[in-house]
Structure formats: structure tokens, C-alpha cells
Design a protein around this nucleic acid. Structure first.
Lengths: 248, 248
DNA sequence: ACAAAAGTGTTTTTTATACACCCATGC
DNA sequence: GCATGGGTGTATAAAAAACACTTTTGT
């Protein structure tokens, strides 16, 4: 097949060299402080260049034989202890020059970032701190300038979280086993912003769906009538899976 | 700062070598054949190993100094001529061993795929064919076994397309400048499947939204009353941007 | 008693769904 | 005339949104 061989030769002549990549993963880990009604994101202080002494998303470079997810879970396990963490892929940022380590020699190795996100229980999440590494929950509303393009990644993650809350039961992964309807409502308002819904209607719709069961146990928080504690029933939720906009 | 230096040393000792990556992009390009009401996907025949003589999504490896998007647009421009193409990032597949080129030496270079997707106008899209490279529109319903994990990527793209159609005006990028409401309805049914909505209600809702203007021009297709040709008014659509579920 | 928080109910408006039916054309 | 596809309208049900009101607690 002469045409094929000829084509192959011109291809080789036309072809620019391929880029060599290191691949990083960066995690956008949210939690909700239900007492102060603040949406928090996990940040770590960088201790090496580039961007030394800047806050950044917890990330790492992918090692040999390691999948992207494995790397994401690995770095997370180094920073935080938490049960039942589920990471979801967010977006891949890979333009040239997004990492200053590329700048010096423009045709050297490239740095690509695959971002993941998760929502964890604030109370259960135990930050792993040592003398050298700064690590903290930061209110999303006032995160500082971050390393690399991490502000952009965070903004993207925040939007995804808001969407996810609207059609999937992530809220119950982050609330305690039993919770009051007001706890749930507060969670939604802190993530989605004020006036997303009237409390009374929120309540009525959610109870009608039938996957929240009243434990009968009452809990009194300061003044006011005691609230019922509810439990999320995963089985009863099953029929609503993948059906968009169950709430809101 | 002795603690810092000590930490740095143990880090180096603990650290496995980083993986080296080549990064590929793979495009899931859909179009709709409005005469036969079929959803199509663009496939190319591979002419080199691995997976020689298998159909695959059109893809390429990222070159030096090239962004991910650039690479995606480059390979597309080699396969198809079309106006106003907008690519959207889909997902990143990066497990080890997803590419058989890794298998021989497990700790050699890794292959990662960032996928993009788009919906193009079938009539305007001109496939660039030569004697050696097979290229074709394949009905999504009966795509064969593809190279690599491309069936998985395609399935992911199909789901994304269905979602996108429900809350964004992509349909008007793929329809001709003027179209009948039935053309629009057919497009939705071929992508979303039968019985997603009654035609009459689909029509009423869409007209009420007010971003479709009747040109007054009538067109007769065979028997039956001639239909009005409509035009999409991007300005009038603006207020609905980012508001989920405008239709359906 | 009163404020505060929980929970119930009611009214109004909007949207979804399923049709029935009229209109304009080709054959 | 009548089949065919285009287009309009209507009745019913369901959901969304606004808000008034009752209940039960702490102080």
C-alpha cells in the first residue's frame, strides 16, 4: 500500500514533538459549619516553590502506577481523616504556562491539573496538622489569592456543588445521622444563598417526597418549640435517583 | 528552620517517582441527520497500532506549546470543515493501563485522555477524507466496538448532550438559520428519545418564552399545511441563560 | 406573658399533561 | 373529499410561591 507509507512519511515530517506532562490532582473539599452557617473549603499552605507561603488547594502530582483518583485520595488522606469520602471529578486545566515551572523553558515539561471535589462532614473531618504544614478550613466567601489558577478551580467547584445540591442527596452525606428539618434548610441556604425557597414550602415538599422519616425524638435548642429529628432513608430515595430537581 | 529541612528530607525518601504522561484529546462530535432523524457521531478508522483497523473517536496527542483545547480543535480541523464549532470539555480518563502502549513496561510513560464534545450541523459539516483515512458519521445506536475506552467516552458524551439540550440553546447551533417548529421538535425527540413531551405543549412553552421569532415565511413539505419558518433570537434568549430547564 | 422556633394550613398563581379540534395543503 | 401535517385552544391536575396562623418550648 504505497499511499499509506507515503502518508506516514509526510506525517513524521509535519509533526511537532509531543509535549511531556506531569499530571497533578487538586481537590476542592467543601464542608459546612452548621453552627455558623458558613460554607468552608479546605486549603493548605504551600511550603515550597512555586508560590511558597501561598494558600492552595490540597494537591499532588500523580506517581508511577497510580490512577488519577488514587492520587486524589492519597493527598486527601494525608490532610484529613474522614469517613465515606466520595470524590468526583471536576475539570481538567491544562493550558501551557498555567504553572510557572513551565515558564523558564517553554518547551520543557508541562503541568496539567485534574481537579476533584467533595463535600464532607465538618464535625467528623479531622485535619491532620503538623508543625510545618499549614492547613485550614476557609470560609468560601473570603478565600485569599491562591496559588496557580486555584481560585478559578474553586469557583468552578462551588458552582458544581450548588448544582449537585439541587438534584442529588449530597446534603445527607454531610448532615449527622439524625437532623432537624431546620438543619437541612440551613444547609441549603448557606450553600445556595438566601431566598432560594420559603422554609415552609421547602419543608412541605421534602416531607411529601417521603424519604425523610421522623424518629419521633424531639430536640430543644434554646428557646422555641422542640424540633423533630429526622433520618434520611436511602431506600425510599432510590426512585428519585437521577431525576433532576427533586428539591427546589 | 530545622523542622522544615528535616521534613523535606523524609519527603524525598518517601516519594515514589512521578509518572510521565503523554496527554491525548479525544473528541465526541455529534450531529443530527434531520431527514432520517438519527443522532450521529463522528468516527475515524485507526491506521496504526494499537487498535489498527478499529474505529475510534478522532483524537490526537498534545504537542509542545499547545493547549488542550488547541489540540482538540487541531485534530478536528483535520477531519471536518464546519463553521462556529464550540468544543466543551467532557471528562478526563487517566487510569494506568487504559492504553495498551503502557502495558509492555508498566512504569514507562502513561497515556491520559481529555475528552471534548460538540454538536455540529450535519449539512454544513464536510468530512475531510483521503485515500488512507476512513472517516464516517455513525448512528449512535449502532456504533461498533471502538478502540481504547472510547465506547465509554462516547456513552458519557451522549448523556451530557441530553442534559445540555434540556437547559441550553445548543439546538439552534445545529439547526439551520431558519427552521420549522417541527424541525426543532424532531431534533429534541431524536436526541432525547420518544415521548419526552407532547408536540403541542412543547410548541406552546417555547413560543411563550419569546426567543423564537416567526419570519412569516411559509414552507410546504409534501402534504399538509405549510409550516412557518422561525428564527432563534439570541438576545431575547439572554435572560434565560444559566437558568436550568427552560424547556421540557 | 412573651419571644422564639417548630410545624400546619390556605389561597393564589403558574406549569404540566392530555386531549379535542380547526386550518391549509397535496393528491 | 380526505389524508396529512401545521397550528390553536381548553379542561384538569399538579406544583410553586406567598403567607397567615397555631403549637410548644425557654425565659
Amino acid at each position: 500500500m504505497p499511499g499509506y507509507n507515503q502518508r506516514k512519511i509526510t506525517d513524521v515530517l509535519n509533526q511537532q514533538p509531543l509535549a511531556d506532562f506531569k499530571v497533578g490532582v487538586d481537590n476542592v473539599i467543601f464542608s459546612v459549619d452548621t453552627t455558623l452557617n458558613r460554607l468552608l473549603v479546605l486549603l493548605v499552605m504551600r511550603r515550597q516553590e512555586p508560590f511558597q507561603d501561598h494558600w492552595s488547594l490540597p494537591g499532588t502530582l500523580v506517581r508511577q502506577g497510580e490512577s488519577l483518583e488514587d492520587a486524589a485520595y492519597r493527598i486527601l488522606a494525608e490532610k484529613i481523616r474522614v469517613n465515606n469520602l466520595y470524590l468526583e471529578q471536576l475539570y481538567t486545566f491544562g493550558g501551557p504556562l498555567r504553572d510557572p515551572r513551565e515558564a523558564s523553558d517553554c518547551y520543557g515539561v508541562r503541568y496539567l491539573s485534574v481537579s476533584y471535589f467533595a463535600l464532607v462532614r465538618f464535625e467528623e473531618a479531622e485535619l491532620i496538622t503538623d508543625k510545618v504544614t499549614g492547613i485550614a478550613w476557609y470560609p468560601v466567601k473570603d478565600v485569599p489569592q491562591l496559588a496557580f489558577d486555584h481560585n478559578e478551580i474553586l469557583a468552578y467547584g462551588h458552582r458544581r456543588l450548588q448544582n449537585k445540591l439541587e438534584y442529588s442527596p449530597v446534603a445527607f452525606d454531610v448532615l449527622p445521622e439524625v437532623f432537624t428539618l431546620n438543619d437541612l434548610y440551613q444547609l441549603y441556604t448557606t450553600v445556595l444563598g438566601e431566598n432560594f425557597s420559603d422554609y415552609s414550602n421547602f419543608r412541605a415538599r421534602l416531607l411529601k417526597l417521603g424519604f425523610l422519616c421522623d424518629t419521633g425524638i424531639k430536640v430543644s435548642r434554646g428557646a422555641g418549640r422542640p424540633a423533630s429529628l429526622y433520618r434520611f432513608d436511602a431506600e425510599a430515595f432510590a426512585p428519585f435517583k437521577n431525576k433532576p430537581l427533586v428539591f427546589i
